[in-house]
């Protein structure tokens, strides 16, 4: 070994890394097959993403992405019964904006949604330095999915499947924990200037570009959240989306029309709305989408019957 020249050593190192990379690519392919053949074997955080990939190709009209605020935006089956359009919630708890971008890249492999709805909380929640790392991790996981799907082996080897009650990405929140200031959007409460971190701005522009390349429209929605949202964040988002020419809908400043009652419509002191809150937001959103977007109505098409509400 010692007699090897530096050039030989470098070639050998490069060959080793190439071999390792090839092994990872092969493993990624194998684990992707395992994942798709065992749709229930996904980690809880990835529920929305992976399960949406198990929908038949090109059947989702609206893809909803973002953090836990997305989980109570609509009830997809009721939404379908009301509008005839299919909407899937592919968001997940704690999803960062980089994660959101790569989730969409994943989804575009199988689906061609007409509209992408991005919930904005991931742009205004407290910034963590780890978002840079999350960004790198997501790039790696996108190109080498073994790093994301590796846990499938555990379920195949006998681990119990995580309990979940996701229905087209929707998760019921039927408890009530009130206790918030319903005047949370008052400009006097938050006069400070909120600055959206640069990495988030970058990924927003990337998401917009990705949507354009895939022929989707992009709509950013801010869900009612008395704990997370305020006037200063609203101003920052409005400025940013105006600059980037992105459609934006804030539901916090439209409460006169929606009617969220923070004494009964929140599951966790104003962090997320609960099921009754969702039943107030959904009709508003349905009407807004009908007025502003040209979405298909599949009702009557037997291929989409699985989207109707399930009889209990």
């Amino acid at each position: 070994m010692r007699e090897d020249t530096l050039k030989k050593k470098i070639i050998r190192l490069a060959l080793f890394l190439c071999t390792f990379l090839i092994v990872l690519v092969i493993l990624s392919a194998i684990f992707d097959v395992l994942r798709s053949q065992n749709p229930e074997y996904v980690s809880e955080v990835d529920t929305g993403l992976w399960l949406s990939l198990n929908e038949p190709s090109d059947t989702v009209d609206i893809m909803i992405v973002g953090d836990s605020e997305t989980l109570s935006m609509i009830q997809p089956r009721q939404f379908y019964a009301d509008t005839g359009s299919t909407a899937y919630i592919a968001g997940g708890a704690g999803q960062a904006v980089a994660e959101c971008y790569y989730t969409l890249k994943y989804l575009y492999r199988d689906q061609s949604p007409k509209l992408i709805i991005l919930e904005s909380n991931l742009l205004t929640e407290p910034f963590r330095k780890s978002e840079y790392y999350t960004s790198i991790r997501n790039i790696t996981e996108y190109y080498l999915p073994i790093f994301r799907t590796h846990n499938v082996w555990g379920y195949l080897a006998g681990n119990s499947i995580p309990w979940r009650k996701s229905d087209k990405g929707w998760i019921s929140r039927n408890n009530i924990i009130p206790g918030v200031n319903s005047d949370y959007m008052s400009p006097d409460l938050h006069p400070e200037v909120y600055e959206i971190p640069a990495i988030r701005k970058y990924y927003i522009s990337q998401i917009k570009k990705l949507c354009e390349e895939n022929g989707s429209e992009l709509l950013v929605v801010t869900m009612p959240s008395a704990r997370n949202f305020n006037y200063s964040k609203l101003t920052a988002l409005q400025q940013e989306f105006e600059q980037q020419n992105i459609s934006y809908l804030d539901l916090n400043t439209r409460n006169d029309e929606i009617g969220i009652d923070w004494t009964v419509d929140t599951a966790d002191e104003g962090d997320h709305i609960n099921d009754t809150g969702m039943l107030k937001v959904m009709p508003y959103l349905e009407q807004y989408l009908e007025e502003n977007y040209d979405l298909p109505d599949h009702r009557g098409d037997a291929a989409y019957d699985s989207w109707y509400p399930v009889e209990q």
């Binding site: 493993l27 980690s43 990835d46 997940g92 996981e141 590796h150 846990n151 082996w153 995580p162």
Partner: peptide, 8 residues
């Protein structure tokens, strides 16, 4: 493959 890491 066997390491405990990643989402969740």
């Amino acid at each position: 493959i066997l390491g405990q890491y990643g989402p969740g």
